[in-house]
Design a protein around this nucleic acid. Structure first.
Length: 503
RNA sequence: GGGCCGUUAGCUCAGGGGUAGAGCACCUGACUUUUAAUCAGGGUGUCGAUGGUUCGAAACCAUCACGGCCUACCA
C-alpha cells in the first residue's frame, strides 16, 4: 500500500507528509466505495460570480433558483450533522450548506473523505442563512478532483516568495490578489490590441530566432538549429522586422512580442519579457507621444476605472497631456547641467566622475550623457514625462534632428522614475543608417561593447527600396503592468519568472 | 559581480549552547444556520546542506546552495 502511495504521489525525492498520507487515504477510501475522485465534465448553470451577481438582492426570506456550480473547496466548517463550506472559481466564491437529512446519510458520510482543496460540483437552491450569507443549500455534490496536497494557510496565504515564484499555481490558488494581478495583465494586453486595431493597426508576428539579433542594445541568447546546422539568436527586439513590413506597404503594424535579453536579473528585469512595438507610416515622434499618452490613459480608464495610479507609494496621475520636456531642458531644470557642454568629452567625463559613474571604458559622449541623465534627472521623473531629443550616438535607428544633427527625434516616457516607452521618428535614409551601423561596429571593437547594434545588411537593403517617414514606438508591457497593479517587482507580474535551479 | 539579510511543522512565524515552540491547517471526539465556526483532547519536524568547535549545536564558526533587499549592468 505504502509503495503504491509513494508511486502515485512522489515528486522528486521529497518524503510524504502526514497531511498527504491522510489525503491519499481519503482518496483510496472513496475509490473503494466506487467514487471516481477524478470526475469528468460537470455541467453548470453558470459561474459562481454569475450566481452571486444574480442573487445579490435576494431577501432573507426568499428562495432563489436551483443552481449547479463547480469549484475548489476553500474552507469546510463541520457542525455534526450539518456543514458549511466555501467553494471558489475564477469569478468568485460562495458558501455551501450541507444537511444530512437533506442529502442523505450515506452521501453525508462521504464528507469525511473531503479535503480542503478538492474540486467539487454542487447542486442546490440559493438562499440566505440566518447571518444573511448567500448560500447554496445542497441537494447533492460530486467529486471532481481530489487534492493530495494541503493548501497554504487560509488567512495569511502563501508568503514565501521563493515558493510563490517556483510554484505559481500554489500562489494563485491561495492568494486572490495575485490572481487579480494576472487577470489585469491579460486585460491590459487584450485592451491594447483592440485599441490599436480600432485605429487600423494590424497585429503581426515576426521571427523570434534569426541570424542577427538587432534593434536594441543588448546581449542575445544563442541557440542552434540541428537540421540546418545553423547558430541562431533569440530576438532582442522586433523593430527591424516590423520596419521591413512598413517598407512592404503594411502602413500600420504592431507586435506584442516576447523579447529575450541575456542580461542581469533584478526587480525590473527578467530574461524574457514582453514588449509592444508599433510602427505607423507617415507619422513621427510627436504622433507617437500623442498615441502613447492616449493609449496608456485609455487602458487605465477602461481597466482600472481611474487615471490615478499608486505605485511604490507614489501617486501617479496618468491623465493626458503628459509633461513634455527636451533632454536639454531636463538637464538644466533638474541637474543644472548644460547639455551642450556635455558634448565635450572631457567635460562629460568630469561630470560623470562627480556622479561617481562607472563608465566601463565606453567613452562615447552620447553614452556618457545618457548615464549622467539616468542618475541626475531620472530620479526626479515621477509623474509621466516625455523626455525628447536624445543624443545620436545612443539612437542608431532614429532620425537625426534637422536643426541639430547631434540629436535625434527620439523620446522616452518616464513614470515613477522608470522608463516605460521608447520611441522615435524612424531613420529611413539607407546611407545614414549604414553609417550608424558602422559606428556601432566601431564601438564594438573600440570599447568591446557586446551590446552594440550589429550591421543588418538586409535591413539596409529594405531601406534602399524605400521606407516612408515612420513613427515607431516600444512599450515595456511588464513595466506598465507593474505600474498599473502596484507591483514593485517584475516577478510579481510574470507568471513563471526564471529561477535558478535548486538542488 | 559586490554588500546586507533570510532558510525552523503543510502554511504564517517565534526561539539563539542543555528534551523542538505558537497560531492556522491536520488527527480523534462533540455539535443541524456557521463563516479566520466553537468546545475537549493530540505536535505531526533531516531546524537549507556539508564540515568544524563543544560533554552537548537548530543556535557558535567555515564553506556551499537557494531566495530577498540594496548596489552595479540592462528595458
Amino acid at each position: 500500500m505504502k509503495a503504491e502511495v509513494i508511486n502515485a504521489t512522489e515528486s522528486g525525492n521529497e518524503s510524504i507528509s502526514e497531511h498527504m498520507e491522510m489525503r491519499i487515504k481519503n482518496r483510496d477510501q472513496l475509490t473503494q466505495l466506487g467514487v471516481n475522485v477524478y470526475g469528468s465534465r460537470y455541467p453548470t448553470t453558470g459561474t459562481i460570480g454569475e450566481v452571486v451577481e444574480k442573487h445579490k438582492d435576494l431577501k432573507e426570506s426568499e428562495e432563489g433558483e436551483e443552481v449547479s456550480i463547480a469549484g475548489r473547496l476553500m474552507a469546510l466548517r463541520g457542525h455534526g450533522k450539518a456543514s458549511f463550506g466555501d467553494i471558489e472559481d475564477v469569478t468568485g466564491s460562495i458558501q455551501i450548506y450541507l444537511k444530512q437529512n437533506k442529502i442523505g446519510e450515506d452521501k453525508y458520510k462521504l464528507l469525511k473523505f473531503v479535503d480542503i482543496g478538492d474540486f467539487i460540483g454542487v447542486k442546490g437552491k440559493i438562499a440566505r442563512t440566518r447571518r444573511g450569507e448567500l448560500t447554496v443549500f445542497l441537494e447533492d455534490f460530486t467529486f471532481l478532483t481530489k487534492s493530495l496536497r494541503p493548501p497554504p494557510e487560509k488567512y495569511h496565504g502563501l508568503k514565501d516568495v521563493e515558493i510563490r515564484y517556483r510554484r505559481r499555481y500554489v500562489d494563485l490558488l491561495s492568494n486572490p490578489d495575485v490572481r487579480r494581478k494576472f487577470l489585469i495583465r491579460s486585460k491590459i494586453i487584450s485592451e491594447m490590441k483592440s485599441y490599436l486595431e480600432s485605429r487600423d493597426f494590424t497585429e503581426v508576428e515576426t521571427p523570434s530566432m534569426s541570424l542577427i539579433a538587432g534593434g536594441a542594445n543588448a546581449r542575445p541568447f544563442t541557440t542552434h538549429h540541428n537540421a540546418l546546422n545553423m547558430d541562431l539568436y533569440f530576438r532582442i527586439a522586433t523593430e527591424l522586422y516590423l520596419k521591413r513590413l512598413i517598407v512592404g506597404g503594411m502602413d500600420r503594424v504592431f507586435e506584442i512580442g516576447r523579447i529575450f535579453r541575456n542580461e542581469g536579473i533584478d526587480t525590473k528585469h527578467n530574461p524574457e519579457f514582453t514588449m509592444l512595438e508599433l510602427y505607423w507610416a507617415y507619422a513621427d515622434y510627436t504622433d507617437m507621444m500623442n498615441l502613447s499618452e492616449e493609449l496608456i490613459s485609455h487602458l487605465c480608464e477602461k481597466i482600472l476605472g481611474t487615471h490615478e495610479v499608486e505605485f511604490d507609494g507614489k501617486k501617479l496621475n496618468l491623465k493626458p497631456p503628459f509633461a513634455r520636456i527636451t533632454m536639454e531642458e531636463a538637464f538644466r531644470k533638474y541637474a543644472d547641467i548644460d547639455m551642450k557642454k556635455l558634448r565635450e568629452l572631457d567635460y562629460a567625463r568630469d561630470i560623470a566622475e562627480k556622479y561617481e559613474l562607472n563608465l566601463e571604458r565606453k567613452e562615447d559622449v552620447g553614452y556618457i550623457i545618457n548615464k549622467i541623465f539616468d542618475v541626475s534627472v531620472e530620479p526626479h521623473l515621477v509623474q509621466p514625462t516625455f523626455v525628447m531629443d536624445y543624443p545620436i550616438e545612443i539612437s542608431p535607428l532614429a532620425k537625426k534632428k534637422e536643426d541639430d544633427p547631434s540629436l535625434t527625434y527620439r523620446f522616452e516616457l518616464f513614470m515613477a522614475n522608470s522608463e516605460i516607452v521608447n520611441a522615435f521618428s524612424e531613420l529611413n535614409d539607407p546611407v545614414d543608417q549604414k553609417n550608424r551601423f558602422l559606428d556601432q561596429l566601431k564601438k564594438k571593437e573600440l570599447f568591446h561593447d557586446e551590446e552594440a547594434h550589429p550591421l543588418d545588411e538586409d535591413y539596409i537593403m529594405a531601406l534602399e527600396y524605400g521606407m516612408p517617414p515612420t513613427g515607431g514606438i516600444g512599450i515595456g508591457i511588464d513595466r506598465l503592468v507593474m505600474m498599473m497593479t502596484d507591483s514593485p517587482s517584475i516577478r510579481d507580474i510574470i507568471l513563471f519568472p526564471l529561477m535558478k535551479q535548486k538542488d
